[in-house]
Design a protein around this nucleic acid. Structure first.
Lengths: 344, 344
DNA sequence: TTGTAGGCGTTATCAC
DNA sequence: GTGATAACGCCTACAA
């Protein structure tokens, strides 16, 4: 890529530490000492005052790039997500950004898919990010070599080989809660719609679901086990397939709300009374669950909290040379609404 | 803020240009010349080959921070948005990020509200962003002085004093189209729900709407003109107020889909048949419009496109010292769905 | 207590 | 063609 020799507008002369020094009649390092060193560096009160005032007057702000160069770190974090069209990801990003900003870190956003992930990771390394957070995409689909040079915190997925720290909603419990709820409502013909994507969190939800069903003596029927794209359209067609079965299920658990909303739509279109003829349960509890009618029952997973916690964990890791990978599991919660009712 | 003296994990020795130089038996600046200078800098083919190979072998990647320091720019753009829980903003961000990445720019994400805007803007300046894009928040609520030191592109709002470039959906046309559609369906008792927030785009939508109504001889009734929070809940309560009127409207235009979805919900709850008893029209055309039943008619505004265009415009501005503020208006489009039907 | 020297990794300007 | 040398803005170490 060609750089240099390009004019840049607003090359307003930046105020530098040297300017402040001149203004205050001291040397530049002294300015640096007062402004960025440990709270009470030993420097004469008088000079300190003078420097602080000069800085104030000139509106001096240290150049983070220059600081980064010296410190070999940038006070910036990379955030790798596959599209925040998905509200779950949007919430994670939002939670992460907030904490990062509070802690003085910038957030570099990278919307990735399998095809461009390597490029994005490289970009982040080039910018000396202090660490990256990975959400919504399996870490092992990313270039391992570059990843190993970074501080990494994963969201919603166990770390391959336990190398990275993880924060996650309790996916096993989510699946388990889902099964329990449907069993409690006395359903037996219970179906499942999961996405093709082999995202660990989704697999765990499925596992928790199946395990709990089996424990109750309900054996999953293969024709009730549907795969779909993790989209509304995917949920729709999967639900249509279920409804066309000679003996359709009386309850369906979808591994994400987006899928569930698609299923919701397909069922409504087919004239099925949700909550009456058929119970439908999603997972994540996104906002629009309350916009459809009847409102979609769901398992609420923490999202902003995950983003926030991931950033905190990442920042903490930066401070300890010997930090070991940690795992944080946050609880999930069943939210009963209109789509899940006792078996007809 | 205290910096320095903090251990940072993975201080893996970065490969520098000096390393490559040593490896290739040339001086460091020569490496720089070959790797980052105009396509065909004059340097002996043999040396060039050697350098390229050395760089390849060592996996050298130039340090963007150092480049930024000398270029006085960072190849990073700031993105200021008020919450991407709002899918409209999420789409804008997504479109912007994509183009930025393609052009080699990083995106620094800042989720702002009026209270923390100044801090975020400062942060961006400290990081020497080459420019910022502002979406979903009125530019004149931000600190003007700092803003004036930046390259700015606004999304969906005309520039105060015409100082900044703007890209926007055609809000006037959106309002006008909305009015036209409802008039065509022979409605006369036409209501409006707009947000409290004085966001320019919203005011323009309203103006376009009113103007077109007036042109058709329909005089807006004050009791039909509701203000609401720009949320689902806001839309709900506004719609309830409308329904309680002695003579309720037969058609309602909401200035955003989020509000409209709230209105949709309130109407459905009240037993109103949307599209039958009452026509409802939103604006933006977010994805979940097709999830409710009947599906919500809307005016589609470009969102990813706005984000993408904003970045392109911003980057272009960086290249011309004498760039004048420009204005791009993108067309909008009526999407007819189930909630708008001929007057009963 | 403060100033001087040196370097972080890069690019630009010159001599050679 | 190529290699010193000097920035960019800041911080650390050491000397005064």
């Amino acid at each position: 890529m060609r750089i240099g020799n390009m004019p840049i507008r607003f090359g307003k002369p930046r105020i530098t530490a040297a300017d402040v020094a001149r203004h205050a009649g001291v040397s530049q390092p002294t300015v640096s000492l007062v402004l960025s060193k440990h709270p009470h560096a030993r420097v004469a009160k008088a000079t300190r005052e003078r420097i602080l005032q000069a800085a104030q007057e000139l509106g001096y702000r240290p150049n983070r790039l220059a600081q980064g160069l010296v410190h070999r770190r940038s006070f910036a974090l990379g955030l790798l997500v596959p599209g925040f069209g998905n509200p779950v990801n949007a919430n994670i990003v939002s939670g992460a950004e907030r904490v990062a900003a509070d802690e003085g870190y910038a957030v570099l956003l990278s919307e990735i898919d399998e095809s461009n992930a390597a490029r994005h990771v490289h970009t982040l390394i080039d910018r000396q990010v202090d660490g990256v957070i990975i959400a919504g995409i399996a870490a092992d689909t990313l270039p391992q070599q570059e990843l190993s040079r970074l501080n990494v915190v994963l969201i919603n997925q166990p770390s391959p080989a336990n190398r990275y720290s993880t924060v996650a909603g309790d996916s096993l419990a989510a699946g388990s809660l889902a099964a329990e709820h449907l069993l409690e409502l006395e359903h037996e013909r219970i179906a499942f719609i999961g996405p093709h994507t082999p995202l660990p969190a989704f697999r765990l939800r499925e596992r928790g679901f199946v395990t709990r069903l089996r424990a109750a003596g309900v054996v999953p029927r293969s024709e009730y086990w549907q795969r779909a794209d993790a989209t509304v359209a995917g949920g729709q067609s999967a639900m249509r397939r279920l409804l066309e079965l000679p003996e359709p299920p009386t309850a369906v658990f979808c591994v994400t709300d987006v899928i569930a909303l698609g299923a919701h739509k397909a069922a409504s279109k087919a004239g099925i009374r949700l909550g009456g003829d058929l119970s439908l349960l999603g997972c994540d509890d996104i906002e629009m669950n309350t916009l459809v009618s009847p409102e979609l029952s769901s398992i609420r997973t923490p999202q902003r909290e995950l983003g926030a916690l991931a950033v905190r964990q990442l920042i903490q890791q930066l401070h300890r040379e010997d930090a070991q990978p940690t795992t944080h599991i946050l609880p999930v919660k069943l939210i009963k609404r209109g789509t899940t009712k006792r078996k007809p």
